[in-house]
């Protein structure tokens, strides 16, 4: 009998040989090139939210099933990194607020690579920008029914809520776009001051953005009973 394909037999022989001499450090995966990717256990920052131009240290913890030495390569969408290698980097936030991702690639000696990222919130210090879309400043309307109190509010970190005031009395709140509130004006008359305050998502040192309009309600009496 003539053996035409010797390779399968050779592989079986080596596997058998390796198992006999397991202390020799020889592994099947290694032999046939099945190197596994490193595993990232965690990526963490000393601070999750920082101010513009502030810095935070970011760490990565990873391991390799083959216990190979690992190397780390860092990059960020924006802001600056103190260095691009190593298990720990220092990231300096950009000027603008928002959510930024810092990425890290972890690679073993065999070239197997895995990636991970962390999101750092940069809290913009400015107050939210807020505008009352309706009613308009100086609007004159009969005191009948209701009007839609509509507001446009924005902040790089998002808006937590918008509060609505009429003549300094809180009349409602809204925490989702479009920010609005129905204002009942039936039977009302005279000058009314409408104010809105918009708060950004992060609560610390949270100065609201404000806008204000004055409208004139002209009293009118319905002749038909509702």
């Amino acid at each position: 009998m003539k053996i035409k394909h010797i390779t399968p037999f050779l592989v079986l022989f080596v596997v058998w040989g390796c198992q006999l001499g397991s202390d020799s450090g020889c592994s099947v995966d290694e032999f046939i090139g099945l190197n596994e990717e490193p595993i990232i256990d965690s990526i963490f920052s000393t601070r999750d939210a920082i101010l513009p131009q502030d810095t935070t240290s970011i760490f990565v913890e990873a391991h390799d099933s083959e216990d190979e030495e690992l190397s780390y390569t860092w990059r960020s969408d924006d802001g600056t990194l103190s260095n691009s290698t190593g298990q720990q980097v220092l990231w300096r936030a950009p000027n603008a607020g928002g959510n930024y991702e810092v990425h890290v690639d972890v690679e073993d000696l065999s070239g197997a690579k895995t990636s991970g990222s962390i999101t750092i919130t940069v809290v913009a210090q400015e107050s939210p920008v807020v505008n009352i879309l309706s009613p308009r400043d100086g609007d004159v309307m009969p005191g009948l029914g209701s009007v839609d109190f509509k507001v446009d509010a924005s902040h790089p970190n998002g808006i937590r809520e918008v509060l609505f005031f009429v003549n300094d009395s809180l009349v409602g709140a809204d925490n989702s776009e479009p920010y609005s509130r129905t204002w009942n004006i039936e039977g009302k008359s005279g000058e009314h001051r409408l104010r809105v305050e918009a708060f950004r998502v992060d609560g610390s040192n949270n100065r609201p953005g404000r806008d204000e309009v004055i409208v004139n309600l002209e009293g009118a009496t319905r002749l038909d009973r509702n």
Binding site: V140, M141, P142, G143, L144, S189, G190, E191, N216, L217, E218, G219, A220
Partner: peptide, 10 residues
């Protein structure tokens, strides 16, 4: 012109 809140405004 519907409604009135004062002589002046009317």
């Amino acid at each position: 012109v519907q409604g009135a809140s004062s002589h002046a405004s009317a």
